[in-house]
Design a protein around this nucleic acid. Sequence first.
DNA 1: GGAGTAAGTTACGTGCGAGTAAGTTACGGT
DNA 2: ACCGTAACTTACTCGCACGTAACTTACTCC
Lengths: 207, 207
Amino acid sequence: MSESTRTRLSAGERRNQLVEIGRKTFAEKGYDATSVEEIAERAKISKPVIYEHFGGKEGLYAVIVDREMEYVISRISAAISEGTPRERLEGAVMAFLLCVQDRPDGFAVLQRDSPTNTGMANLLADVGDQVSNVFASEFKKAGYDRRAAPLYAQAIIGMVAFVAQWWQENPKMAVEEVGAHVLAMIWLGLRDLPKEPDQPARPADYP
Amino acid sequence: MSESTRTRLSAGERRNQLVEIGRKTFAEKGYDATSVEEIAERAKISKPVIYEHFGGKEGLYAVIVDREMEYVISRISAAISEGTPRERLEGAVMAFLLCVQDRPDGFAVLQRDSPTNTGMANLLADVGDQVSNVFASEFKKAGYDRRAAPLYAQAIIGMVAFVAQWWQENPKMAVEEVGAHVLAMIWLGLRDLPKEPDQPARPADYP
DNA sequence: GGAGTAAGTTACGTGCGAGTAAGTTACGGT
DNA sequence: ACCGTAACTTACTCGCACGTAACTTACTCC
């Protein structure tokens, strides 16, 4: 069977193709503005195929979001699994930025609004809770106000997410540089900004 | 004419009522998920009235967004009009937080996605450019890397916007406290967090 | 009190997009 | 070669929500 003659794809191949095309399309136009028809067109098939595989528009969307979340979470989890607190933070920030760099469409999908409010909101809420817990115990140790822990967690997350978005639209810097600046701001504060911040090593154990 | 008997409103009153109801509804459900029908229902009138006043759904939305942006921008502008750089930054942050506190629905509307991508994206882009310019000149003076100025601008904006959102969902702290923490983080960096950050005065010359 | 206008209603047209039923074509095994 | 199944298409239904045309009711000012 020659590749060029091939018209029909297997179930698995079709699923993967549709997830990819769907991700790109949702990233470009958002959930509501994307029609099932359009995704079908881009994939050069007809609508019912999508219903066959995913049960409907929401089904496809759910699969896309789920995969993206899984991807981001697994990378961040790997990055914060060990090391000093500072190394873990650096790892998490760099992991996130690398996700954005490697899968811009996925990031875009997660950032947009969705029907069942799954997406970035949930992801960031989760991450926020995690970070917040770490902070709470550290704050307690250091005698700071524990109630403020979630605030600082949110602040850091917002900072990173926003910088990532800006960076995606103005991709003139290397990941390492972006990460270095963000981390510098987190650790040192604006007042003592270094002229050339240290560049944390890019984790090597991820594709 | 007794107030209780009054059924018909004047054009201006109706406009204001619809803007208010529209803001609340769009804030709750987002642009797409809100139907003209529903807004009409909540206002206890019929659909064509809205078309009469605003020409359509987008027209109403545009007016709402415009008013909200105007409101936020005017407050921030007033806050950064004079003082030392630090006072200006404090003023801007506090002004923004007070906007969120005073008009939560407006903030919600601006944050959501919209048809013509007006909204928070544009607002923050504008503010970002402003802040970025200030930073660029300061950075030059201090010998830092000028290209990084927009990054730090975005970082601060993202931080404030995210904290604001979190605070809206967990309104357990006073504005002054939230502002103090955010500003502490900006100025001092995480490493030297004070146990009880200074509380900047709330600007008195705004309603 | 009645004409004129502003405010508001009912009842529709229209289009688009989600979802489906029934029929058709390629492919793979025997 | 041919049968069965999995992949795919054509051709619809249905409902919702934007927008509009034509009509009706309340208010105001002489």
